[in-house]
């Protein structure tokens, strides 16, 4: 929309867009299958499995799983319900299907995604390249902020680790965990004036975890004859040591993303003397 369009036209366009969006959203929500009542007493992973799998099972028995007018392809296959902590091999033992798709079946895509993020971090660092100056604030940050950010950083750090170690059990995984850790480091930047993480160390850490990802993939290639194939026992759904190599890969991704985003924050926040102006 150009700048000289009258305001009335803009408003009418915006209003019609809103109306269309609202109608579409309402329709999408109405078509959604309704789950049973949620029992909050269980942990998230358990809740997630029970909700998804049991509703699907019930719906399949009632024949309501498919949209109107579409018949299921096969009805003769017996469908056994899956229970948390007992069954084996629901999508390689991972508690949610999303995880096994992201890391197992489409593991190569995830490797590409991580590479894109790496390129973005490198691009930011290149764009802001210059002679580093000391970061200067208008005033010294207060003591309360300094102490508070330091203490809360430790807790945020542990929470990020929790998110990506439990990537195969609870919703979450490598990317959110890394982002949580990076936001903790952003807090440290706000709290102290001359705070400077070890930039070279971050880069080395990040490269090492990227290498760990590739090495896990290569191990799959040499032992099971396929790149990024699972070569570990899958275990029982709900245990920490289950889901084969998904947990390992999520740990690698989490460390890589955390180091990368921290490096981005670092290169954004440090003042440089621009060379072109």
């Amino acid at each position: 929309m150009r700048n000289d369009t009258p305001a009335l036209v803009k408003r009418i366009t915006a209003l019609s867009l809103i109306t269309i969006l609202l109608i579409g959203f309402f329709l999408a929500f109405k078509e959604m299958p309704k789950g049973s009542a949620v029992n909050v007493n269980q942990r998230v992973s358990r809740l997630y499995v029970m909700k998804n799998v049991e509703t699907a099972t019930k719906m399949m028995e009632n024949g309501k799983f498919f949209a109107k007018g579409i018949k299921p392809l096969r009805t003769d296959v017996p469908y056994t319900p899956i229970t948390f902590g007992k069954s084996k091999n629901l999508e390689d033992g991972a508690a949610n299907v999303v995880t096994s798709i992201v890391v197992d079946y489409r593991g190569f895509d995830t490797l590409g995604e991580v590479t894109v993020l790496f390129l973005a971090a490198t691009g930011v660092a290149m764009l802001l390249f210059g002679k580093e100056k000391k970061r200067k604030n208008k005033t010294e940050p207060s003591l309360i902020m300094y102490v508070g950010t330091r203490i809360s950083f430790a807790i945020i750090f542990l929470f990020g680790i929790y998110i990506f170690v439990h990537g195969h059990l609870t919703p979450g995984g490598g990317f959110p965990g890394g982002a949580v850790i990076a936001s903790g480091i952003l807090g440290l930047f706000l709290g102290k004036n001359g705070y400077k993480p070890n930039h070279l160390g971050l880069k080395v850490f990040e490269s090492l975890s990227g290498m760990a990802f590739v090495i896990i993939g290569l191990t799959g290639l040499f032992s099971v004859h396929s790149f990024l194939a699972n070569f570990l026992p899958t275990g029982v759904i709900g245990d920490l040591y289950s889901a084969g190599f998904i947990g390992l890969i999520y740990i690698a991704i989490g460390m890589k993303v955390g180091a990368e985003l921290s490096a981005v924050v670092n290169s954004m926040i440090v003042d440089v003397e621009e060379e072109w102006s």
Partner: peptide
């Protein structure tokens, strides 16, 4: 889609 929700909250809203 809690996976996407957590990612969106951490990256989109926070960082």
């Amino acid at each position: 889609a809690p996976d996407v929700a957590i990612t969106e909250a951490a990256i989109g809203a926070g960082l």
